[in-house]
Amino acid sequence: MRAIATGIAALVLAGCGVLPAPPGPYPTDFLPTASPSASLDANLLSPYGFDAAQRMTVRVRNIECQGLMIGTGFAVDDHTLVTARHVVEGSRLLEISTYDGRTFSATATGTTTVADLAIVHVEESLSPFAMLAATDPSVSDAVTIIGYPEGGRLTTTSAIVITNEPEDVDPEVGPAFGVTAALEPGMSGAPVVNADGEVVGVIYGTSTTLPQSFMIPVSTLRTLLEELPALIPESATC
């Protein structure tokens, strides 16, 4: 009998343990605490919808003593552009046009004999600038080339890095990479941008036999930028 009473008491106590509790305080707000917010990197898009790679790319007009040469370049800082050496050779006057139609004059600061690269100085402030990749691209990397083919409209071309030993390359150009894009004249000096928006090379020529073009890798460009005083000044005498 005592055992039965003890069992009943235990059941009662256990029952108290599983009794449902009353509801807690009524919630004051059912909305999530984290409200959605717009996250748009202002540096990536201009008010006109152009991305940074398009905005940093400029059209280079080389007014020679006789004739014109049209090429492409891109900004690497406030007042410095990079383009191909043959774009600014023999220049009497350089004129730079931006994606939105602004035009201003420039002077060729210097060129290098190591590669088909040239540095151009502009008085006006340029924005945005190119972010240079830390390393050269690898074969099979997807890249984008932005420039002004035939001196026409700003164009974006997709390509793949195919080899780092292209054919029919001028020996004085130095190491070069190939890309799977048959680019037209006017694309010389165009930036080659990787998937992260970083410049990995500069277009300087195209193959005469294959649908390929060639670029100077960013490592060479970095070396050139670090040795600006060693560049050969461009003369503009007709």
């Binding site: 006109y48 919808g49 006057l93 046009s97 931006t98 994606y99 939105d100 139609g101 035009t103 001196g151």
Partner: peptide, 26 residues
Amino acid sequence: DTAQTRLIELADEKAQEGDAAAYAQQ
């Protein structure tokens, strides 16, 4: 997109006119 395309066209037209003007000056 339309405005962007038009802006590119206008920039191109301006550049072409600049080319023509430079050529004419030459």
